[in-house]
Design a protein around this nucleic acid. Structure first.
Lengths: 191, 191
DNA sequence: CTCCATGGAGACAAATCTGTCTACCCCGTA
DNA sequence: TACGGGGTAGACAGATTTGTCTCCATGGAG
């Protein structure tokens, strides 16, 4: 896994990433990607054997980026574990409110590609699991009684909030989720 | 709005509905729909001007069916409003556990069709609103302090549970959602 | 100087897919 | 009996998409 990837490869990845996200993976053709990235079709196919492989690479790249962004944004906003748990939905709120927000790319990918065996599906499952483990760790540090169950409840909230943002087009789901979360945390202390 | 629709039209609608759901709207061609429904292409286009119009009709039909099924299943399982609120997630659990379950068709439609102006998008928004109003009514009857806020929190849970069922492939999200819901109901009484 | 890997430009094959059009059939009814 | 609405069958136009292939340019290594 050479960390020193080609510049051309990166240009393709960036263009594809942006196009896939803004307009939907299925609705973006190879021709468009090469037009935006300013790369020849022959070149694209030298780096990626097929569109599916390109999709996979884009999603893996996005997953790394996103998780890093999310966790560091959360750590900037909260000091104690409990603060950080609640801050996650402030971070998400700002994401949902961004004018370029077009839904959670990982949820989008799963539902846009019906096939559950597609590599992009696994990437999304992994992202969800990474989030769950991160939350579980915070919950354990915060002294929540059952961090595992708590983290699964958390996944409901983040999924629900993302869906509201995508379908209704409003970040308000994040606020509601934050309220529910604080109720859940309280309920898991005094028991 | 003649309720006495043609038999042929209904056959097309049924075949399209099933195919769209099982394999994804975008991945089903007109030719497949006419093959399954045993109808000539000319006939399909006499009843539906375009594929988009067929999609719209299918989604509207599914929305009616689903809401009716959901509400009556809930009313079968619970007597009091509070019981019914909790029973919603038992009903959803049985839905998610069905071997033919392929995700919530309304969420699928929105994310599969990137275009937010597509009629199918509106259908999905309407379904969510119908659910919200139904829950809000139950919550009011159950004596919850703020039924409106409660119903929005509920939407998070049902969305989250559906997502878990679709992505992870397990109905367990419904159980977690039910637990969260009961915590929420309690929190909204004593305040 | 000569390879050869990397890249650009774009024609082209092959497969889809939507929607139209022709030609014909059946059946109830005026 | 003649007509017209609804139906079947399927060829076909037109557009689009992925992936291959040819031809050419450049620039660094041996």
């Amino acid at each position: 896994m050479t960390s020193e990837q080609s510049d051309t490869r990166q240009k393709i990845l960036d263009a594809a990433s942006e196009l896939f996200y803004q307009r939907g993976i299925q609705h973006v053709g190879i021709n468009e990607i090469i037009a935006i990235s300013g790369v020849a079709k022959r070149t694209l196919y030298r780096w990626f054997h097929s569109k599916d492989q390109l999709i996979e690479a884009v999603m893996k790249h996005r997953a790394e980026q996103w998780l890093h962004w999310f966790e560091s944004a959360v750590e900037d906003r909260g000091k104690t574990p409990k603060e950080r748990l609640l801050a996650t939905f402030d971070v998400l709120h700002s994401w949902y409110a961004d004018p370029n927000f077009r839904g959670c790319p990982f949820i989008n990918a799963v539902l846009e590609i019906a096939d559950a065996t597609h590599p992009a599906h696994h990437v999304s499952v992994n992202v969800r699991d990474s989030i769950r483990q991160y939350v579980m760790r915070l919950a354990a540090e915060a002294g929540v009684t059952d961090p595992d169950a708590f983290s699964q409840q958390y996944l409901l909230l983040i999924g629900g909030a993302s869906l509201v943002a995508t379908i209704e087009g409003t970040p308000s789901g994040a606020d509601n989720a934050k309220n529910v979360l604080s109720v859940l945390i309280d309920a898991n202390y005094k028991r």
